[in-house]
Design a protein around this nucleic acid. Structure first.
Length: 620
DNA sequence: GCCAAGACTTGGAAAAATTTTC
DNA sequence: GAAAATTTTTCCAAGTCTTGGC
């Protein structure tokens, strides 16, 4: 897509056609009974559905969150009252046992997993047909993909953090709840049988094709054009163009707020400090929130307890931001900033707003006076892209592709840390790290034996390529060698046993004679011998080359290990998707002859189609 | 100028798909 | 070739910011 065309593309549409949103399938009762006080309970389909929602989170965090359980149970009782006879015994959450339903869900999952390839293929085709029918809309003759096109199914509201309404029942959305936006001359899609649309509008100033209200929060939900659509691509590009403009204003803006720090007007001082935080830390604007939401803050809504001062000039931040993700950071600031903040905090006690004279609207009004269209979030985009570009300069020009990719991912991680994009450490991270570490240790164990087997002269020759080869291996002492040997034996044994088991099973299935039983003791003897001296079977003339290769493999594996551990709680995707100008990546790929597929997956490549044509010297 | 509503972007978790490993 | 690990996609909650009514 052409950049100029996108810039000039006007908002809105003249004609709009689509088949309307898709509705999730109606509930089909399974008849599996939950237990109450140890006894099975027959429930109406409506109540059974709600019970099944809860069974779905039974083993998740929500299942043990008291607020979630309480909200769920209140709504569950209401559904029971409305649909089941008064004889239904359910009164107390503690006496409920959803396990039978949970087990049923697990069985369904198993069945799904065990489906034959044909069944899976049929399922896929079914899904593709739905996408074909509902997944597109035609704007001014252009057929483009929609985003999520299905009306959200009913379920339990999964509010995050300390959300007061988490666990509340989110009822099913009916066509009567839905407003359709469509071209005035286009055929209006048929609502599901027996229903009618809530409303039909022809509003060319908006991009959504359907809207309804979240029954819990009352806020609107929409079906939008997809990320790869011209409309989204256009606004995406304009977002980055706006951020680039900031280059021309940033010096002036910084000068301005530094001067305001010593102003006699409270508003100006507060605004100056807030702007300093936003510029320096890339934190969010921080709109006010209601009591019916989780208590999270951003810059303008920071309270006294979120900030600690430490003389001579350090500020410690600790608060819950968007999605209740904790932000912890300490920064050194200049004296004027420190003294302005000290003065501001003097009269404040915990619970007080730090910037009580400021609001995001006021701050953004000020910003847009400094640069047209400038708002607080532009700083996040600007800082993310600027940081990424400058970090990429560390790419080793003559490095290998993996080394370049490491530099790319490091730059990405730098940005993610700046924006505080976190992810939960995966459940088996520790386990998988330990396994990876063992793998490295086993390689080192083998290398230890190679070194011992190699004549001094040959070792010297290897040392020319692997300088540290002659240094003693501090983590490969006698105890560790013993452990590695043991590990090698165990792994080998397991492999043999597994293989044998598979062979036996296959023979049984095919009705052939199974292999003779394993002589475990014999194998163990052989393996033990090998593990005690892993290079004994090797051709001595090939030892030198093998040692060199193994050394390279070890250092690569060690680097990957560090990389993985450092990144275990950092999410790279959010910054890549939303904050880093894709043209920086495209230019980098071209300059370093790295295929674009190495940095953008299929989805990203389509989304950033508009950025692909820049030259290798393009600068943000 | 303020406030609430509306529209659009950003966000992490979970599910699904794919790749790697044993 | 199954299981495990990793990556990608989906899901929908939760932000930001603009708009419109008074």
């Amino acid at each position: 897509m052409d950049l100029d065309a996108l810039t000039n593309a006007k908002r809105g549409w003249t004609t709009l056609e689509h088949n309307g949103p898709m509705f999730p399938p109606l509930y089909e009762p399974h008849g599996v009974q939950m237990r109450y006080n140890g006894q099975p309970v027959a429930l109406s389909p409506a109540s059974e559905e709600v019970a099944t929602f809860f069974a779905g989170v039974l083993d998740a965090e929500q299942g043990s969150n008291p607020v979630f359980c309480k909200n769920f149970f209140t709504d569950f009782l209401a559904v029971i009252r409305a649909n089941d006879p008064p004889s239904c015994p359910i009164r107390s959450f503690e006496l409920c046992d959803f396990r039978p339903i949970r087990n049923h869900l697990d069985r369904l999952q198993e069945q799904k997993k065990a489906a034959t390839p044909e069944e899976k293929l049929a399922k896929k085709a079914e899904r593709a047909a739905l996408v074909e029918k509902y997944g597109y809309a035609v704007w001014d003759g252009r057929r483009e993909k929609l985003g999520a096109f299905m009306i959200e199914p009913p379920g339990l509201f999964r509010g995050r953090g300390q959300h007061p309404r988490t666990g509340t029942l989110k009822r099913r959305i009916q066509p009567e709840d839905v407003t359709i936006n469509i071209g005035p001359t286009a055929a209006v899609p048929e609502p599901p049988p027996g229903h009618r649309w809530g409303q039909i509008v022809h509003d060319p100033s908006t991009s959504w094709i359907a809207t309804w209200r979240n029954p819990i929060t009352g806020t609107p939900k929409y079906v939008y054009p997809g990320a790869a659509s011209a409309m989204k691509a256009s606004s995406d590009m304009m977002k980055f163009e706006k951020a680039r403009q900031l280059h021309q204003y940033i010096d002036q803006i910084r000068k301005g707020y530094l001067a305001d720090l010593t102003s006699s007007e409270t508003l100006k001082v507060q605004r100056a400090i807030a702007l300093y935080f936003i510029d320096r830390l890339s934190i969010r604007a921080g709109n006010e929130k209601g009591d019916d939401q989780a208590d999270t803050v951003g810059c303008c809504s920071l309270r006294r307890e979120h900030v600690q001062l430490e003389a001579p000039a350090t500020i410690h931040f600790d608060f819950l931001g968007k999605d209740s993700i904790r932000y912890v950071n300490s920064i050194e600031v200049t004296r004027p900033v420190f003294s302005a903040l000290t003065k501001l905090l003097k009269k404040k006690k915990p619970g007080d707003m730090i910037f009580d004279s400021l609001s995001t609207t006021r701050l953004n009004n000020h910003l847009s006076a400094l640069m047209p269209g400038l708002t607080a979030k532009v700083f996040r985009t600007y800082n993310a892209s600027t940081t990424f570009q400058s970090e990429l300069e560390k790419t080793p020009v003559n490095g290998s592709d993996p080394e370049k990719m490491l530099a790319y991912n490091r730059a990405n991680r730098h940005v993610a840390i700046l924006c505080n994009h976190q992810r939960a450490v995966s459940k088996n991270h520790g386990q998988s790290m330990a396994a990876a570490r063992d793998k490295v240790q086993l390689m080192k164990y083998t290398r230890y034996h190679m070194r011992k087997a190699l004549p001094t002269a040959a070792l010297a020759s290897v040392a020319q390529h692997v300088p540290d080869i002659r240094e003693p291996e501090t983590d490969m002492d006698a105890d560790e060698r013993q452990r590695c040997m043991q590990l090698m034996i165990e792994q080998h044994m397991k492999k043999c046993v597994d293989k044998h088991r598979r062979q036996t099973e296959r023979a049984k299935q095919k009705g052939e004679t199974p292999p003779p039983p394993l002589d475990q003791a014999e194998i163990e003897r052989e393996v033990a011998q090998l593990a005690a001296s892993p290079v004994s079977t090797m051709d001595p003339s090939k030892l030198e080359v093998a040692l060199m290769k193994l050394s390279q493999k070890i250092s690569a594996a060690q680097a990957a290990l560090v990389d993985r551990d450092e990144g275990k709680e950092v999410s790279l995707t959010t910054s890549k998707l939303n904050y880093i100008d894709p043209r920086i990546s495209v230019a980098w790929c071209k300059a370093h002859t790295i295929p674009i597929a190495k940095v953008f997956n299929a989805q990203l490549t389509t989304k950033f189609d508009w950025a692909m044509s820049v030259d290798d010297d393009w600068r943000f």
